[in-house]
Amino acid sequence: MSAGRDVFKRPRDFDDRALGVSLRPYEWEVLLALDGRTPFVQLLRRMGLDELDADDVADELTGKGLMDQCVVTYGEFMREREVGSKSVELQRVPPPEPVATPVAVVAPPVSNGSPSAGAPAQAVQSSVAAAEPRLRATIKPQPPRLSFSVKPTSKPVMPRVAVGITGYKLKPLLDFIIDQAGGKALPKIAAQLAVYRVFRRVPRELVLADNIHTLRIGDPTLEVHNKELYDAIVRAIESTFGVKYESNAANTATG
């Protein structure tokens, strides 16, 4: 795993997961410093921990389920990319040229007999006016939330990684499992155990490769990002219940 450039965040149930876990004090510091924006290696550097191997630390802490890698959907990626481009464009606006137009200066009234406030005085006034700061509106773009950098280009270029980045929803599969196990009449816990019975047949390596460490059975937004994993889940359903899973049929059944 090359975690240095990756961005991590604490899982939502971090407090629960942290219970009873023993870590080195600096590891807790690192976990508490995760902000979901800063690349991991940069975070370590900022904390004066750059002598550590970012990969080792990341492996250890993700392995304990105390931090999750930040991944984005295609839509989020494009939004961030747009914000990133705008921020780059704004930064590239050249600074304003010194004002060349003459500035009208009204000479202060002078009393009779006093030395004339002629040309030298005007010149001084003029240069003071030019040196005075003018009012400027500066729009500071929000710092990009993600760690990847975007090169400004005149034409937007579609990212090559975009295909298939959107996840495969698991809800139809879970509904199908519950249906197979006995349907809605099934006690909730039995339905949840049926889901476990399927997932224990799914190769764990595939699940972990999709950065899934725990799976909340009741979460209707569950999705996986890897087609191979999705297919493995379908195969596990089929071998657990001895049926053929047809996605359309299951979707229809779900309503």
Binding site: R17, L19, G20, V21, G63, K64, G65, I189, Q192, V195, Y196, F199, R204, V207, L208, I212, H213, T214, L215, R216, I217, G218
Partner: peptide, 15 residues
């Protein structure tokens, strides 16, 4: 009984 999870990493044991 809260919402269960399926855990794929080594067990996170408490005290």
């Amino acid at each position: 009984l809260d919402e269960p999870v399926i855990e794929f990493t080594p067990p996170k044991l408490l005290d």
